[in-house]
Design a protein around this nucleic acid. Structure first.
Length: 296
DNA sequence: AACCCGGGGAC
DNA sequence: GTCCCAGGGTT
């Protein structure tokens, strides 16, 4: 049995909550009028996409499709155009599928409970917990990349969280969430914000950190640097992911294009273009008809 | 657990 | 060029 690090003290939690009251960003999906659906939409858009890029897309999106029923009834081609360049456009398809499932199975209302949420397309462990905490104000263990980093540093003393989560990490994150429900909701929001604004991946602002006066295991350990190359980001240039994005950009701009015209996207490798087009058709992000390709 | 899935901006 | 971003789904 490995030794369990000391959990955060009540004083440390209080300090983070006080910091949040003073430092939280004013984001539109944090306003009461955003509603559970607006919060759910924001969480899907924010999967692997920074806040500043989501903001304008979310505002337009919610003005256009304020309810699950509105999005469920929208033409998918319009949904993909509105998604614009947020990336991973399969998220847009899943979000519309999610809206349709909510209409079909939940009377058009975002369901309560992490199990019911996780059953919806595009909603995994993190998003189910986030909607539960931020939309329904129930206790949940929210573990996004920000929370994982704060806990890895403050509790474990590691410079960055591991690539994939472990049961032990889950346990540490859960142990930090207060039992009191309203307090747990604020903690989840606050620790996420702390990771986003202060305890950042690179160049953390430790002088602004509310935990500095309490305890941070990483600072106590002398702020060891992460192992170089330990993260290993995915390549992008020359990959299928890049080509799929180029094809989708063509479809968003022109609506439909000749299949033969797509070869111009990479004249040196027609096989790559064909492979990526095929995968987009399989994913339902594009439709082929009469030698042309268009949005679904 | 490892891999695939966009795109952009900071360094 | 590298790394990061309120992850999810598939194998």
């Amino acid at each position: 049995m490995p030794e369990t690090p000391a959990p955060l003290t009540t004083g440390a939690v209080d300090a983070v909550l006080a910091w949040y009251e003073q430092s939280a960003r004013e984001l539109p999906w944090r306003l009461p009028e955003a509603g559970a659906w607006g919060i759910l939409v924001s969480e899907i858009m924010l999967q692997q996409t920074p806040v500043v890029r989501v903001l304008p897309r979310w505002i337009d999106w919610m003005a256009r499709w304020p309810s699950p029923a509105d999005l469920a009834a929208a033409p998918t081609a319009e949904v993909l155009r509105a998604w614009d360049r947020l990336g991973y456009p399969r998220r847009a398809l899943r979000l519309q599928d999610c809206a349709r499932a909510i209409v079909r199975d939940h009377d058009g209302v975002v369901p309560h409970g992490e199990d019911a949420l996780r059953a919806l397309p595009g909603i995994g462990e993190y998003t189910a917990a986030a909607v539960t905490a931020f939309a329904h104000h129930d206790r949940a263990v929210v573990a996004d990349t920000n929370v994982r980093r704060v806990i890895a540093r403050a509790v474990q003393g590691d410079p960055l969280p591991a690539r994939s989560s472990t049961a032990a990490e889950r346990s540490r994150i859960a142990a930090a969430v207060p039992e009191d429900v309203p307090r747990s909701v604020r903690w989840n929001q606050a620790v996420m914000e702390l990771g986003a604004l202060v305890c950042t991946a690179r160049s953390p602002r430790c002088e602004q950190c509310p935990l500095a006066a309490h305890s941070c295991a990483w600072v106590a350990a002398g702020k060891p640097a992460p192992q170089p190359g330990a993260r290993r980001t995915q390549a992008f240039a020359g990959t299928d992911r890049e080509m799929r994005g180029l094809i989708m950009a063509q479809l968003r701009e022109h609506g439909a294009v000749a299949v033969t015209a797509l070869d111009a996207l990479d004249p040196t490798d027609p096989a790559r273009v064909a492979r990526c087009l095929a995968s987009l058709l399989v994913d339902g992000l594009a439709v082929r008809e009469d030698g042309r390709v268009r949005l679904p």
